[in-house]
Nucleic acid binder design. Sequence first.
DNA 1: AATGAATGAGCTTTCATTCAT
DNA 2: CATGAATGAAAGCTCATTCAT
Lengths: 215, 215, 215, 215
Amino acid sequence: MDLPAWEPRRVVAMAAVLPDGVTPPGTRGRILQAGLELFAESGFAGASIRQIARMVGINSATLYAHYPSKGHVLAELVRIGHEEMRARLAEAADGTRNDSAARQLTALVRAHVLVHTDYPLLAVVTNSELHALDPELAAPSLQLRDECRRLLADVLERGIKNGEFSLPDPLLAVTAIGGLGVQVAHWFGPALDRRREQVADQYAKFALRMVSPDR
Amino acid sequence: MDLPAWEPRRVVAMAAVLPDGVTPPGTRGRILQAGLELFAESGFAGASIRQIARMVGINSATLYAHYPSKGHVLAELVRIGHEEMRARLAEAADGTRNDSAARQLTALVRAHVLVHTDYPLLAVVTNSELHALDPELAAPSLQLRDECRRLLADVLERGIKNGEFSLPDPLLAVTAIGGLGVQVAHWFGPALDRRREQVADQYAKFALRMVSPDR
Amino acid sequence: MDLPAWEPRRVVAMAAVLPDGVTPPGTRGRILQAGLELFAESGFAGASIRQIARMVGINSATLYAHYPSKGHVLAELVRIGHEEMRARLAEAADGTRNDSAARQLTALVRAHVLVHTDYPLLAVVTNSELHALDPELAAPSLQLRDECRRLLADVLERGIKNGEFSLPDPLLAVTAIGGLGVQVAHWFGPALDRRREQVADQYAKFALRMVSPDR
Amino acid sequence: MDLPAWEPRRVVAMAAVLPDGVTPPGTRGRILQAGLELFAESGFAGASIRQIARMVGINSATLYAHYPSKGHVLAELVRIGHEEMRARLAEAADGTRNDSAARQLTALVRAHVLVHTDYPLLAVVTNSELHALDPELAAPSLQLRDECRRLLADVLERGIKNGEFSLPDPLLAVTAIGGLGVQVAHWFGPALDRRREQVADQYAKFALRMVSPDR
DNA sequence: AATGAATGAGCTTTCATTCAT
DNA sequence: CATGAATGAAAGCTCATTCAT
């Protein structure tokens, strides 16, 4: 098996893409995108307000006409990331409300993976930089994050109850399946030569196998 | 299912433990431990040489009598982390050289998980701060990391060849199984009320299910 | 004797009162009052244009539609303060032109004290922030200030000449008596439980005793 | 009477003199002197850490090896100023403990004036910049200040009780006499051509006249 | 091995001010 | 008359690192 060289970078993908409709117009939006790129690459502490401003092409003081602090830029990114995640997971769960737990889990994992392939930089920032936020700035995102975990926990619970799944310790399954997608954001990119659906489908199958009773 | 509250911290565990026999004696070792704790908590960029020195109880200039730069402290931690990882994985692979691929995979995943439960801070630093290292400081660790992935890839390849495993896209299995353990370092701690072996066993079962042919 | 607790604040009084008829109408006047309050409390350098604007309820850029610079706001306040002072002292001196030097000095000191009790914030700004003005902005006020000192010097001179006063070094009396009122602006306020006339009368008596020949 | 031109500067004197034995050795002391000069001239808010550093001839970062913040430099100056004041006043009061109240008041006012002629910059900073200090940094000085006022209040009380003084409202005498010296710091300097004792003697006589019964 | 003093570069943030709208 | 966006300069302070002792 050919293993591609390990990338010491935090994210392999390059494009600082934000979900449709959430990028504010004008300078404010360009600040957000520059923050996304730099926070993803270097972390919150490793990226400076001047770097962001330089990337946007403005004076660093101008940034403060749009965001009250560096932390607020991160907070908005983290919030957007969590909202996209929650929206996609909720839609996946909702669209399969009446299906088998297996189908619903598949939908959830696919959605989870796809949000990481579609917005890898955002996902990395969302997952890895929460610790840098002041508690009051982090609070809204923390709640969204709990809702996401709840969606996964619920489908597992349902599958266990109706016998589709076999899980002696469901909480560990939540952490394991939840962790699957997270890693995707780090390595997914054009170099790996897999389409997004390929990864999503494969990872959904992994998840399904993880929870299914041994034969 | 009761989901414990999500922790915005990077690591839930507290003790800055290093593998036996690798901590240098005296001040040099205490610097390493302080660096471990602070880099794990705040990241390389977010932790300062003065914080490290304060935690050790020395003047920040004294640090330079032991390490030529802040980066070298991180480099040593990252190297130790990778060496422990490689040693444990190699031992697991070696001890099951003549067993089935399933048994060998089980041993590998168990070892992988256990190195994350035993040294969570070290694992977080090892996995998340490589990007902050100068290339020449990172190089030795990058090679160790490739060896670790090779071990996992090899057992998967063997299982596929002899029919134990069924994997249309083995590379994705490497990323998925490899990612399983990584996440453990973030949440494993006394609060979650699972013993290290419980997690290791369960995760090994997950991995095995992931690669096993559907019924 | 009960000494009230010393106030580390620059002015004890709170109301940003300006003399009748000098406050410009509309926003311009509200800027002046906000400047008065903030310059009195924090000094010219310690108060920012944005604080003033916030207190007025306008954008900081709007301020420049009314005053060409921060310094001009201070200059107008300082000018108003000096003009009020000159007007009151001149009126006091004029109204007692034909009285004894003692009566005239009494009138002057009373007026001097009262202008400090009536406009304590203005007095503090007028006395303490002149140094922050550009020379050309300060010039008109400097002249008014000299006229005020002249009035005091003249009455002392007259009293010495006609034997009412006994002062080996009249210049020191000018500084001492002039300084009496200045301090009043800092501590006069409702907390000290003295009416304005009480203070004025008492200070005038002090001044008179200072200049009168020992028995 | 020739009135010298009014000086818009905060202090006429130039030499940044500190009392004997209180200037710390080396850079720390030179920082203190530069702070004294600049805070006296421009106020705390109007003087910058970089100006201080430039005057000392050091990098602005070096300042933080000696003082933890700009406020701490001011706090030390203010404390020194208050301690010198308290020491001189206490010595004056103590040395005349068994004399008449008149003699004791004379000694106090003389001491008060002399501390302002001897350390005019320090006196201005001490008196005018307390408001810029954080409460916890100001607290020690506030207590010293109260002790000073107490010394003056006590002698006035004694003089009133034994009939030497006649003061219907002694509190106003405290403010007036206390204010006498304060102003001296602003204008005392070589230009005014008065020796320190001349001013002290004259002001002491003024104070004595202020409190003595009219003939 | 350890220190205090020092530094140049850089940090986040605020400053007074300008300008097109 | 008022604004939001923008700016260069500067604010207080911290950074990793050096060096003489």
